[in-house]
Amino acid sequence: MSRIHVTTTVNGDAVDYLCEADDTLLDVLRDQLDLTGSKEGCASGDCGACTVELDGRLVCSCLVLGAEAEGRTVETIEGMANGDVLHPLQKNFIEKAALQCGVCTPGILVAAKNLLDHTPDPSEEEVRYWLAGNLCRCTGYDKIIRAVLDTAAEMRGAA
């Protein structure tokens, strides 16, 4: 089977890979680039555990073909911290116990960061609707929503 050669940018680094036409971006990230931080919870766009940014927009990487990433930029959870400095959301998720099992956490962090990047002062309702495509079965969302709101306030304060 002939495979497709793709050149793209992942977390700021130029990468290239060979993929089959029906490999999803999530397959490529996990199986070829060993970026297993993005999780497969459903492969149908329902759980958000595979959330990444594609050219700055949130997408489910399970609903993007690996071949579609040609020439584009992909940001995953692995690119969220700056070296050994955690993003404030990452720091607060630990400090405010916004994770239990943690399997939803990468997707939620990527989605929440994207929200705060262009909505620095979201309401609770905005955060809840923005994250509606990120299922968490452990926490009941309470501590997640609080951590996002607290981080937003903290980042506004620092800015």
Binding site: R30, L35, T36, G37, S38, K39, E40, T76, I77, E78, M80, A81, L86, Q90, K91, F93, I94, L99, G102, V103, T105, P106, L109
Partner: peptide, 15 residues
């Protein structure tokens, strides 16, 4: 295990 879980490093069953 917090750091591993907010950076995507933690290894779950399929990882």
């Amino acid at each position: 295990d917090g750091l591993d879980k907010v950076t995507g490093r933690a290894r779950y069953g399929a990882d």
